[in-house]
Structure formats: structure tokens, C-alpha cells
């Protein structure tokens, strides 16, 4: 009798365990369902409208703006990452770290407002340059954190070794650590590019959009993300199709960069 109760209790616990597992599987399904749905619609709705003439302007706008942004942000962000890594644990750096966190937690649209208030107003025009500045400020804290994480993950023994052999701190970092860090840092930069590429909100206030090729760096420019946003709000099905096509191109570009980044970091770990 007692044994039966015991077995029943165990069975009940087992059953509960199984139900919990089913619940978890359902949650896992819900996590991945949006991805498949988004990709399905982007591909099926974007495919027909691909290769429109206007897309090219936006593709180049996206590439130019992102590259300019990374030209500003990559050296700054990596340098900052080195600073955070070098000064880990010291008390003065907590202020800097807190400020870096502030910037990381700042909604990107605020960066757009401030760049509008400073760059757009003072140059007297919306521009590709202003857009790049806002993207640069946006990815800067991300790059710094990625750099620091990667430094911590892979090099402390290397640096200690160099220091033990009598190298100066700067030599240890520049001649021992940096060469080894090339690939991880490249991956960090690529991830930064991915983040910057898809960003839309600050560009509305800084680069405005352009139906033509930008006349220069100080001229309004269109990007894929802006094009998707504007076209999505159009009542015409033809224009909406362009939004989907833009989304397909943008996601394809991001996926390629993402896979390249993974490939590089895989090569690293081998």
C-alpha cells in the first residue's frame, strides 16, 4: 500500500517533468517562429520587386554611410575597448565605464536628435556625413564592449608572458596582443557594421533621404533602412513591394556579413 503511494508519487513527478518538457518545447518553438515568418515573408514578398533602379541608390547609400561611420567609430571604439581592458578593476575607470554604459543604453533616436541639432543645423543641410556621424556614435559603445570582451577572452596569459619577459606594457599590447587580436577585432567591427546597417531612426533626422545619388558627402542620402521605412507607409502596392525588396537586400547583406564574421571567428578558434 505504502509502496503503491510512493510509486504513484514518482509517476506524478515524472508526468510533471514530461509536461514541463513539452511546455519548454512550445516556448522554443515560439522563439524561433518569428524568425521563420519574417524570413519567409521577406523572401516571398521581396523577390518579385528586386532589381528596381531605386534600390541601387539605397544600397550604395547604406554602404557608404556605414563605411564612413565605421571609419570614425572603429579606431575610437577599439581604442576605448583597450582602455577599458587595461584599466580593469581600478577605481577611476568605473566612472568611464559607467559613461560607456550610459551611451550603450541610450536610444539611438536621441543620437539622431543631437546630431541634427549640431551637425545638420550648423552645416545647413541634411547629409550623408551627418548620418554617418550618428551611426558612428551609435556603434561606438558596442565596439568598445566587444573589444574589451574579446581581449579578456583571449589574451591575458599572452600579455602576462610578454610582461614577464621584460617587455613594456605598451610593447606587450601593441606587438604581442594586437597581432593575435586582428581576427577577433575584425569580427567585432563586422558585427558593428551589421548593427549600423539596419539602423533607421537617427537617419530620419540626419540624412533625410534622397531620390537621386547624393551630390556629395554633404548632401542628403537614402539608405535601405530609410527606403524600407518610407515605402512601407505607402498606399501603393508597387511601392510597398519595393519596401519588401529593400528588406530582402538588407537582410541578404547582413546575412553575408554575419556568415563571414562567423567564418573568421571559427578559423580563429581552430
Amino acid at each position: 500500500m505504502k509502496e503503491e503511494l510512493f510509486i504513484r508519487a514518482i509517476k506524478k513527478r515524472k508526468r510533471r517533468d514530461q509536461w514541463f518538457f513539452v511546455f519548454l518545447l512550445v516556448m522554443g518553438f515560439f522563439s524561433l517562429f518569428p524568425l521563420f515568418s519574417v524570413l519567409y515573408y521577406v523572401v516571398s514578398k521581396g523577390w518579385p520587386g528586386l532589381f528596381a533602379a531605386n534600390d541601387l541608390i539605397s544600397v550604395f547609400g547604406t554602404l557608404e554611410m556605414t563605411l564612413f561611420a565605421l571609419l570614425f567609430a572603429a579606431p575610437l571604439g577599439i581604442g576605448l575597448g583597450f582602455y577599458l581592458y587595461e584599466t580593469r578593476g581600478t577605481r577611476t575607470v568605473t566612472v568611464i565605464r559607467f559613461i560607456a554604459e550610459l551611451l550603450a543604453g541610450m536610444p539611438s533616436i536621441l543620437v539622431g536628435m543631437v546630431v541634427y541639432a549640431i551637425v545638420v543645423i550648423s552645416t545647413g543641410t541634411f547629409s550623408l556625413f551627418a548620418g554617418s556621424v550618428s551611426l558612428a556614435v551609435f556603434v561606438l559603445p558596442f565596439l568598445a564592449r566587444e573589444t574589451e570582451d574579446r581581449l579578456i577572452a583571449s589574451t591575458s596569459t599572452l600579455k602576462e608572458g610578454a610582461l614577464a619577459l621584460g617587455a613594456s606594457n605598451s610593447r606587450a599590447l601593441l606587438q604581442m596582443v594586437l597581432p593575435v587580436m586582428k581576427r577577433p577585432l575584425l569580427v567585432a567591427v563586422l558585427l558593428g557594421v551589421i548593427r549600423a546597417m539596419g539602423e533607421t531612426a537617427p537617419l530620419i533626422f540626419t540624412s533625410l533621404g534622397n531620390n537621386f545619388w547624393p551630390a556629395g558627402v554633404f548632401s542628403p542620402a537614402s539608405t535601405l533602412s530609410l527606403q524600407i521605412y518610407f515605402d512601407a507607409l505607402s498606399p501603393y502596392t508597387g511601392v510597398q513591394a519595393q519596401a519588401w525588396a529593400g528588406a530582402l537586400i538588407l537582410i541578404a547583406m547582413i546575412m553575408i556579413l554575419f556568415l563571414v564574421a562567423r567564418w573568421i571567428s571559427k578559423g580563429e578558434s581552430k
Binding site: S37, V42, G198, I228, Y229, W244, F258
Partner: peptide, 17 residues
């Protein structure tokens, strides 16, 4: 991969799907 999808694409999907 899900983490790399840009906000504006979610908006597009949200609006039409």
C-alpha cells in the same frame, strides 16, 4: 540570426503580417 534582423524589417513584418 534573429538578433541581426533590423528593427525596420520587424516593423515592416509587423505592419503587413
Amino acid at each position: 540570426v534573429l538578433a541581426t534582423i533590423p528593427s525596420v524589417v520587424y516593423g515592416l513584418w509587423g505592419l503587413f503580417v
